[in-house]
Simulated assay, not measured.
Amino acid sequence: MESTWLVLVCLALGLAVGAGFVTLLYAAERHGRQAAEVVNPAVPDGIDQVLDALESAGVVLDPSNNVVKASPGALSLGLVFNRQLVHPELLDLVGRVRRTGETITEDLELARGPFGEASMHFRVRLATLGTRYVLLLADDHTEAFRLDEVRRDFVANISHELKTPIAAVGLLAEALDQAADEPVQVRRFANRLTSESRRLARLTQEIIELSRLQAQEALELPELVSVDAIVADAVDQNRVVAGAANITIAVGKKTRAYVYGDEQLLVMAVNNLVANAVAYSSEGSRVGVGVRRNDGAVEITVTDQGVGIPEADLDRVFERFFRVDQARARNTGGTGLGLAIVKHVVQNHGGDIRVWSQLGHGSTFTIRIPEAPVTDHNSLPTTTALAATGDTTP
């Protein structure tokens, strides 16, 4: 009897221990599953597809501010690194959304990525996603901000540039009125008035041309144009001024190269480069203008032996109203728009422009434009082709 009782007791104890062990295993498994859900929470249904479809950069954050989903845009813009938001400003906004439950929209200037120095402008929008998550959307407005700054600078510069000749015209008109009985003074003031009015007209015309180029209305009907004719025309427009300063303009051999484009605009671009080379060259020096074919492109090079451009200014010479030498530009009547116009003309023709310079040794500007296929200009009438290159003999 005793042995039977002992067996029953042992059996009961074994069952109790086994049940307890099973209970502990179940509790441990459930705790582990809950911990896994906290560490790696599932993104709510449909969020993956929504983020992939949006143009905005998108990020979903869990209660611990871990990034559980980030769109390719968020990664490429440097908003997320190692499954964390990079910028403390964004984390502050996430905290505000969690506390208030309200949607937040703000404009922020942030560095690009965890190691970036360049600033980017974002419009961010944050909102709760269910009860646990926060959704962050960011739109890159950096280019829009840059264009706004360019427009503001352009308006400010135009106002400044126009103010000087307009004020001078007003003052000279008053001086003419007061010197009506003095023929010598009248002639002197009249010459000054003519000079300032020409400067004002030139500035206004260049502003109009630059606006037209930026609107990309310049090449509605591109034509086959002789590069040799372009260069010859541009050089001829500068021979008188160069001769007065005893500056020689040397032109290289004809290439009979052609491009598709607007002849008037291309002449204006090359003319601006030659005029600059003459204006910034010392008396008795030489300006070289050459054309060559190079790997499907036509290169027009203008080289001077002038004062040169500081290395720090090389990246800025094509900006509107930028002048390397303010005093000299004023004396030569420069508007500060010439190189900006050249850049836009070349870009509208599918090309680019490069500059090399060394202080005290001169500068070289090179325009590269795609060359028209040889078969196109070989089909031109012989007399037309020869006339375009300035040659009179077949």
Rank of each mutant, 00 (worst) to 15 (best):
N271K: 08
V134N: 04
I247S: 06
A269G: 02
L135C: 03
L314H: 07
I369W: 00
T301S: 09
I369N: 01
R187D: 15
A36E: 06
S379Y: 07
Q214N: 11
E117F: 04
P88S: 13
E149R: 15
L147Y: 13
G360I: 09
D45G: 15
V134I: 07
V22P: 00
A229G: 15
T384Q: 10
E143L: 15
I207H: 05
V9D: 05
T100Y: 12
R323W: 00
A35Y: 10
P381S: 03
T142H: 03
M1W: 11
S357F: 02
G113H: 11
E143S: 15
A168M: 06
T382C: 11
N66W: 10
G390F: 04
G284F: 02
P88W: 10
N246L: 14
L79H: 07
A167E: 11
Q205Y: 11
G334S: 14
K253A: 11
A388I: 00
A385E: 08
A244S: 14
A19E: 06
D181W: 03
D262E: 10
A372E: 00
G113C: 04
L219C: 07
T392H: 15
V307K: 10
R123L: 13
L110Q: 05
G390R: 04
V39L: 14
R323I: 06
R198F: 10
A167H: 11
Q84F: 09
V302S: 01
L77F: 09
L61F: 04
T105H: 14
Y133H: 09
D376W: 02
D313T: 06
H121E: 13
V155W: 06
S211H: 12
E196S: 12
N191P: 10
L79E: 05
V150C: 09
